[in-house]
């Protein structure tokens, strides 16, 4: 029984959603890039079918727009960022969708890249904690990477972590430079 659970757990992640978020913190900005892949298979087909409004088996341009909107919502819905307890409002500034050269309602996978931005009114000072919470649509782990711009335009060591569903992660930032 335990082997089956382990195998099932492995299989539940083997085909599904793969999400990673890269966050760059600078003195006045928090920027992010979220990339989500949906593996080829039944899941991808269901998502495509959901956008096929006229049920003709093909995704027209407006339908792809709706698909993109849906995927963005799925990807960003559970992404939460904060600065020492204050929640940040993230705006989507740019999106790219890839249907893997296949516009049919098929099992072909999907990929999404989303640029995110949050501006802060006051400069982010040294010692402030960046709080991150992220859950992928199938509750698989999300790989999160955080980097910070240094005042001398140098390189800050990157923190990265695989967040489990519901897990909160706090990263203390040092002195920051401009974006």
């Amino acid at each position: 029984m335990s082997c089956a659970v382990v195998v099932a757990a492995l299989l539940s992640h083997a085909a599904g959603f793969h999400e990673r978020v890269s966050i760059a913190v600078s003195r006045q900005n928090v920027d992010g890039l979220l990339v989500m892949d949906v593996d080829a298979g039944e899941q991808a087909k269901l998502i495509r079918a959901g956008a096929d409004v006229n049920r003709d088996g093909a995704l027209s341009a407006p339908e792809r727009g709706a698909l993109q909107k849906k995927l963005v919502a799925m990807a960003t819905g559970s992404l939460k960022l904060g600065l020492s307890g204050f929640a940040l409002t993230l705006a989507v500034t740019d999106v790219k969708l890839s249907t893997r050269n296949d516009d049919a309602v098929s099992e072909s996978g999907l990929s999404l890249a989303v640029m995110l931005a949050a501006s802060v009114k006051s400069p982010i000072g040294e010692g402030i904690k960046l709080e991150v919470e992220a859950t992928s649509p199938d509750s698989s782990h999300v790989l999160v990477e955080v980097s910070a711009s240094r005042p001398d335009a140098g390189v800050e060591a990157v923190e990265k972590r695989e967040l489990a569903a519901g897990e909160k992660w706090a990263v203390r930032v040092g002195a920051l430079g401009r974006r």
């Binding site: 760059a24 890039l33 740019d94």
Partner: peptide, 12 residues
């Protein structure tokens, strides 16, 4: 491994 916003845009 991104280092700055410029790098995120590059990756995007």
């Amino acid at each position: 491994v991104p280092r700055s916003f410029g790098d995120l845009r590059l990756l995007f």
